[in-house]
Simulated scan of single mutants.
Amino acid sequence: MNQSFVSTKRFFDQKHFPHGFARSGDFTKAEATLLENHGQALQALASGLVSPASAEEFQFLECCQGTRQASTGLEKVWAKYQKILDHKKRVFTVCGDWHQARSANTSRYDSEPDDPVDED
């Protein structure tokens, strides 16, 4: 990785990893270091903001497009990062707004029953 994946800034993802990659429990220290040191360049390449300048960067783009399996450490850690982000985006909740349910089913909640119940 002589001139490939060069970045002048450290990479952080405050939205998904507010305490850092190393403290998230998802990445090893080595993976976290790779992401922090090269993540800006990887993100720029993957998003198309920067054109690949080396064979390694072309291979990385092929991995991002799914036409090639990740084989280098950077490719693997970026694939892992993307997989974790995809999982975090698919958060499902089972709670709903009680008021919406009530207004959608007003006859169920607000009306009196048609047949009175006899209490003996």
Rank of each mutant, 00 (worst) to 15 (best):
V94A: 08
L74I: 11
F11Y: 15
R108H: 13
T8G: 00
V117F: 14
H87Q: 14
G20P: 06
Q40R: 00
G25E: 15
K29R: 15
A79V: 13
H38C: 13
G48C: 06
G73C: 06
R68P: 03
K76E: 14
Q65G: 01
T72G: 07
D115R: 02
T8W: 04
Q14Y: 12
T93P: 03
K15D: 11
S103F: 04
D13E: 11
Q59H: 13
A44Q: 07
F58G: 00
F27Y: 12
D118K: 01
S54H: 03
T8Y: 05
T106Y: 14
E112T: 07
A22I: 08
G96W: 04
G48P: 01
Y81M: 02
V77H: 01
L85Q: 02
A55N: 07
S71Q: 14
N105L: 14
F92W: 04
G66C: 10
S47R: 00
L45H: 02
S51W: 05
D118P: 02
C63K: 00
G66N: 06
S107Q: 06
A46H: 04
F60K: 01
S24K: 00
L35S: 08
Q69G: 04
R108F: 15
S71R: 15
Q59G: 06
A101D: 15
R90T: 12
H99I: 02
P52C: 11
Q43H: 13
S107V: 07
K76N: 10
V94T: 10
D13I: 03
P116A: 07
A53M: 12
R108T: 14
Q65N: 04
D110Q: 05
L49Y: 10
Q59S: 12
K15V: 09
C64L: 04
D120A: 08
H38E: 12
N105V: 05
A41G: 06
S51N: 09
A70K: 00
